[in-house]
Amino acid sequence: MTTRTWFITGVNSGFGRHMTEQLLARGDRVAGTVRRMELMDDLKEEYGDLLWLAHLDVTDAPAVHRVVNKAFADLGRLDVVVNNAGYGLFGAAEELTDEQIRHQLDTNLLGSIQVVRAALPHLRAQGGGRIMQVSTYGGQATNPGASLYHAGKWGIEGFIEATMKDVAPFNIGVTIVEPGGARTAFRYGSARLGPRIDAYEASPARMTRRFIEEAVQLSIGDPAKMARIMIDSADQHPAPLRLVLGSDSYNAIHKALSERLAALEAQRELAFSTDFPPVE
């Protein structure tokens, strides 16, 4: 088993916490970012210098670059950079405030982009590494009442997939993780809702709001198992572009891709009809 140094955003809860616990237990080093340092006191006390911590709000782009630079400087190298920090914003597009929309995209999309941009010069200089982007099945499939959440996840998946092609010559592998529902605080802890508009009682968007407000349904996914697969993927060469985790994720993505492919194939003749005739 190879010992590595990891940089993970949002290590105080969810997948970030599960990954950090498992990595430290096996002897890897973790550079973790948090919003509340005291939530990591137990792991810091147990593992000491194996756990490097910094306060970070990923919506602060200059701070992202300062923290990433300091982590590389203090630890010498980072083998895997994990974009994990993020949260869900739910409600019909019309129900969300401008402030909520900006913060959602600043966190889930632009924050992740800035972490990658800050890390790439260091990864190139050290001769390679791995970038891991935590997304969701919602990066390829959609649900009502989640338009802005999907906007961020579809956006970051496009950015990451294109970046994978840019950095392949530098021995930098890239993986997008697409988990389904997992028993973390994401759904019933950090998720946020837009102000209610009564007209949407008749819309499918209300299903998502009720799902979160009632907070009674357990997710099917085991976050510890998912974290283990994410960690193990660092040993795969070449890096898998996508990791689909959870039967709900597989089913949702399979349905979405099948429907999109069928719709595309139905338009083949129309698409080709818009080309100039071939030159003879």
Rank of each mutant, 00 (worst) to 15 (best):
R4L: 14
W6D: 11
W6G: 12
F15S: 07
F15H: 05
R17T: 02
M19T: 03
Q22T: 12
L23F: 02
L24C: 03
A25I: 03
R26K: 14
R26I: 08
D28M: 03
V30L: 02
V30N: 02
G32F: 00
V34L: 11
R35T: 01
M40L: 15
D41Q: 01
D42V: 00
E45K: 13
Y47C: 01
L56V: 00
D57T: 00
V58K: 03
A61I: 14
V64M: 02
A71N: 02
F72H: 04
D79F: 01
L89A: 04
F90M: 04
E94Q: 10
E94Y: 04
T97Y: 09
E99D: 13
D106I: 05
T107N: 08
L109D: 08
L110Y: 14
S112W: 03
S112P: 02
V115F: 04
R117I: 03
P121N: 09
L123F: 08
A125H: 06
G127H: 10
R130I: 09
M132R: 12
S135Q: 09
Y137C: 04
Y137M: 12
G139F: 05
Q140E: 12
Q140A: 12
A141R: 02
A146S: 15
A146I: 04
H150A: 07
G152R: 08
K153N: 15
I156P: 09
F159D: 11
E161A: 15
A162G: 11
M164V: 03
D166Q: 09
P169A: 07
N171G: 07
G173S: 10
T175F: 10
I176E: 04
G181M: 15
R183Y: 03
R183K: 15
R187A: 15
G194F: 13
R196H: 14
R196G: 06
D198A: 14
Y200L: 12
A202C: 03
E213Q: 13
E214S: 14
V216Y: 02
Q217A: 15
S219Q: 15
M226Y: 13
A227D: 06
I229E: 14
D232V: 12
D235P: 04
R242D: 08
L243Q: 06
V244I: 15
S249C: 05
N251A: 15
A252F: 07
I253W: 05
K255Y: 05
K255E: 13
K255H: 10
A262C: 02
L264K: 08
E269Q: 11
A271N: 10
A271D: 09
A271W: 10
F276M: 09
P277V: 11
P277M: 13
